[in-house]
């Protein structure tokens, strides 16, 4: 494994994983991965299908807990606190580390209620007007406000696929997370909707630490500052995106980037 440290002095680590392995039953899906996720930058995980990049992403907010057979070993810290320690409240963790899924999954509720869902369960807003503000701000940040401001009462499932995905991003933003995990957020969308999502990721980058799993190397190259290449459950190489794509240190990374396998 090749890791380049201190590529950017300003990038302090928001999340820090050390020697993380994930098992599904007896099968080892992630083998001994260590990585620092910088704050306020976009980190991309790339690699062929089944390489474990999505599995690793889901360890970062403990969504693997919902899979009965999954087991995580090693240490993952958020601001220096081990998220797998017994003192960690999963509800709090997921409020701080939000997630956007591959397939847009708005709740079958109104657009307004989709956004208000998180603030309500976490008791973030103290009144209706504050909740209105949060809804508007979140939709604005997700670049959806102008398209839906006149129909907040309509069902979130009635929006187009790209709008649904931005709604899900707005929903994640509404609880004011520190990290946003995105699991192939544009793979179910057409090129125009994809471009909008990428633009949005760019806008959000200065505010949150974003981790994005993607199949598309072009997408990783366009939106991310750092890229980690996963292969067969191992992290092969991690470094500044420019360098990974122009001058990778590992032969396997180079083969994948140039399309020799994958």
């Amino acid at each position: 494994m090749t890791v380049i440290h201190d590529m950017d002095d300003k990038a302090e680590a928001k999340m820090r994983a050390r020697d993380v392995s994930v098992y599904y039953g007896d099968k080892k899906a992630i083998d001994d991965v260590s990585i620092d996720i910088p704050t306020k930058y976009v980190t991309a995980f790339i690699g062929p299908s089944g390489c474990g990049k999505s599995t690793f992403l889901r360890t970062l907010n403990r969504m693997n807990d919902t899979i009965a057979s999954a087991r995580v070993e090693g240490n993952i810290e958020l601001d220096g606190e081990n998220i797998y320690s017994s003192g960690m409240d999963v509800v709090q963790l997921r409020a701080r580390v939000g997630m956007v899924f591959q397939k847009p999954n708005p709740f079958p509720k109104s657009i307004y209620d989709n956004i208000a869902y998180g603030p309500k369960i976490h008791g973030i807003a103290s009144g209706k007007s504050e909740l209105d503000e949060i809804v508007e701000r979140s939709l604005q940040r997700a670049g959806l406000w102008n398209e839906v401001k006149d129909r907040l009462g309509e069902s979130g499932t009635a929006l187009s696929g790209g709008q649904q995905q931005r709604l899900c991003i707005a929903r994640a933003i509404a609880v004011d997370p520190e990290v946003i995990l995105m699991d192939e957020p544009a793979s179910a969308l057409d090129p125009i909707a994809t471009a909008k999502i990428e633009e949005l990721i760019d806008d959000l980058a200065g505010r949150y630490a974003i981790v994005i799993v993607t199949h598309s190397m072009q997408q990783a190259a366009r939106v991310s500052h750092r890229t980690a290449f996963f292969h067969l459950g191992k992290m092969v190489e991690y470094g500044p995106t420019d360098q990974i794509f122009t001058n990778p240190l590992e032969e396997r990374t180079k083969d994948y980037i140039t399309g020799r396998y994958g």
Binding site: M63, F101, K103
Partner: peptide, 18 residues
């Protein structure tokens, strides 16, 4: 109800009963 709906809610930090 699609599992993605449940995951979406859990990922927002909702508890199981919520």
């Amino acid at each position: 109800v699609p599992g993605s709906m449940r995951d979406g809610s859990l990922a927002m930090g909702a508890t199981k009963s919520e």
